[in-house]
Computed example of a mutant assay.
Amino acid sequence: MNDFSTRAIHAGQAFDPTTGAIIPPIYMSSTFVQDGIGGFRNGYEYARGGNPTRDSLQELLASLEGGSKAFSFASGLAAEDALLRSLLKTGDHVLMGNDVYGGTHRLVNRLFVPWGIELSTVEMSDADAVRAAIRPGKTRVLWLETPSNPLLKITDIEALAAIGHEAGVIVVVDNTFASPYLQQPLSLGADVVVHSATKYLGGHSDVLGGAVVVNDEELAEKVAFLQFGAGGVSSPMESWLTVRGIKTLAVRMDRHSENAHTIASALEGHPAIERVFYPGLESHPGHDIAARQMRDFGGMLSVALKGGPDAARRFAESTSLFQLAESLGGVESLISYPSEMTHASVKGTELAVPENVIRLSVGIESIGDLLADVLQALDPLS
């Protein structure tokens, strides 16, 4: 099974040998009968340590990202927390992009920094700046997010992986916006991939989850221990829903990308729009890199309104198909005001999102209906 779409449907998804059910069942059991003291059947003892449904998802995720091991967690931030605790010790330095997701920055800044971890941010699209910001002997993690949230900046994964490895740094890529269908960071030199599985992997706004995918066996053992020891695992139902969502990931991402590209192109040059942030546009400064390392450009785009914060708020509250809500990556279209919603935790810092920026998660509805909805909301602002 070499093709992505085939693996998305079949990897880790053998039919049930007992009944022949084509879809593996959801194993809702919290514990498992032992043949004798310490005699575990197929390695299962207690659901925090292992569950067949979660294992199915983990095997699938590893296959799609090209990793040796994957670990499924209760949320994206739970996955990031377990990974960072597996990697860091007091005195270590973490280097992130200056527009990293607000929740990720909050996790490190509010939880890890008080424990003696050092954090700084840099413009990740500037390789020289990244190289200069790495602290020899101290920087432990280089955290990349591409495309970034919400300004859709593009980072050259291959180039920064090389820079990180020269300095002995672990290179982590948040692949949530792209999904493994559009981008596979491990093949470009990254050491670890993280996901908020809540987004495109689940794909239907009905699941909360996160994932860590690695290639290094030693790191895999550390993450596995944190998954078991701290217990932030995904439930059987959440795991099953994520697997179900992944089966249609390829066709969904094709449609997300097509719809987003059409809307981005239509809004570029619109009288109410100051700037469109979408890597599929040739005007985007990271377009060439994105074209090289991504299969397509994804379903996320952001726009800056000429009328400032007031115009941005009016736009966000005037759409109908694009529903005002946090999160992204579902089949339905969502609109959000990052400054006060998804990135409120970094307001007033160097990571603050401009107050005239609106983020669109473009769904898979009819493009004619989506475009009409956006344009009618912009018309009064023109």
Rank of each mutant, 00 (worst) to 15 (best):
G229P: 00
L328P: 01
T53I: 06
G203K: 05
T53Y: 01
V374M: 09
A224Q: 08
A260G: 13
S235W: 03
R359S: 14
T90C: 10
I37T: 13
H195P: 04
V276I: 07
V374R: 03
F71L: 11
A291N: 12
G97S: 11
P185G: 07
R41I: 14
V130L: 06
E340M: 12
A78M: 02
V169L: 13
G39T: 08
L142R: 07
A8K: 02
A161R: 02
I117S: 10
A312F: 03
K222P: 05
L111C: 12
L88Q: 03
I22Q: 14
A159Q: 14
A372D: 14
T242Q: 12
L281S: 07
D16S: 06
A167F: 11
L219F: 09
H287Y: 11
E118L: 13
I263W: 04
W240Q: 09
A250I: 00
N259S: 10
L301N: 07
A14S: 13
Q13W: 05
D288G: 06
G39S: 08
S235N: 08
L119T: 02
L219I: 09
R314Q: 14
K89F: 01
E123A: 12
F277K: 06
A78C: 03
R244I: 00
S320V: 14
V141F: 04
Y44K: 03
I364P: 03
A312Y: 02
K222E: 10
P150R: 06
Q227N: 04
D296I: 08
P52W: 00
A21T: 11
V130N: 06
L64A: 10
E123K: 12
S63Y: 00
T198G: 05
A211T: 02
I170M: 14
S302P: 04
V130W: 05
M124E: 02
T139L: 00
T262A: 15
A290H: 09
I364K: 09
L370E: 02
F73R: 04
N149T: 14
P24R: 06
V172A: 10
L64T: 10
I23T: 15
V94R: 01
A70G: 14
A127H: 11
G116I: 14
L301Y: 08
E365M: 11
G67E: 03
I263E: 05
G363M: 14
R359V: 07
L186A: 07
L378S: 03
I157P: 02
R244L: 13
A11F: 01
I163V: 15
I263L: 15
R140I: 01
A62T: 03
A8P: 00
V346Q: 09
A190I: 06
P271F: 10
K347H: 14
